[in-house]
Amino acid sequence: MPHDHHDHDHAHAVLPPDPALRVKAIETILTQKGLIDPAALDEIIDTYENRIGPKNGALVVARAWTDPAFRAALLEDATAVVAELGFYGRQGEHIVAVENTPEQHNMVVCTLCSCYPWPLLGIPPGWYKSDAYRARAVREPRKVLAEFGVTLPGDTRVRVWDSTAELRYLVIPMRPEGTDGLNEDDLIPWVTRDSMIGTGLPGRPE
C-alpha cells in the first residue's frame, strides 16, 4: 500500500512546481485521455461560484426565525427539511442544525480538513480552511471570535462542533432584537455567512 513513500517517489513531485501550471497539466492529461470534459469543469465552477452559496442557508435561517413549525422540524431532522427546499447534495448529505441561545453559542470547525455544508453555504472561505482557524477554534474559540469582532456575554457557554464525520453543521443564530415586524424576505439579508458558521452574528444589512 502506498503510504509512506519519500518525497521523490511522489507523483506530484514530477509536475511543474507552479500550482497553476500543475493543475493545468493534470487537466490537459485527463482531457487528452478522455477522462474529463472541460465543459463539465466550467459547470462545476459556475455552480459553486454563482448558484450554491450562503443565500441558501440564509433562507433556512430566516424561515426558522419566522415559522415555528419549520424551526421545530429543522432542529429534529435538518437533512429532510433542507432537502425539501432543494438544498441536498455533495457535502450536505447529513445536515444538523444547532441553535444559538442566550445560554449557548455554537461554532463550527473541521480541525482535520475542511468539512463544511456546501449545499447551504457553498465553498468554505479561506479562513475556515486556514491552519490558524483549524488549530485554534477548538482550544480558544473566544479569542478567535474576538478576531471576528464578536464578544459573547460571560454567561454564554461556547460549544465548538468539530466536523469529524460526514455530518455537516448549520448554526441557527439568534434573531436580532428589533426585527419583530420583519418577514422572511426582509430577514434573509440579515443572515450573514459567518453567523451560520458561528463566527459572526446576524446584523442589519448595509
Partner: peptide, 23 residues
Amino acid sequence: DGPVDPSPEPVFKEDWHARALAV
C-alpha cells in the same frame, strides 16, 4: 498559528483554485 484573517474574498481567489476544485 497566529490570528485568523476574516477579510472577505471571492469564492475562488485565483482561477486555478476553481480549476483545482473542479478537476
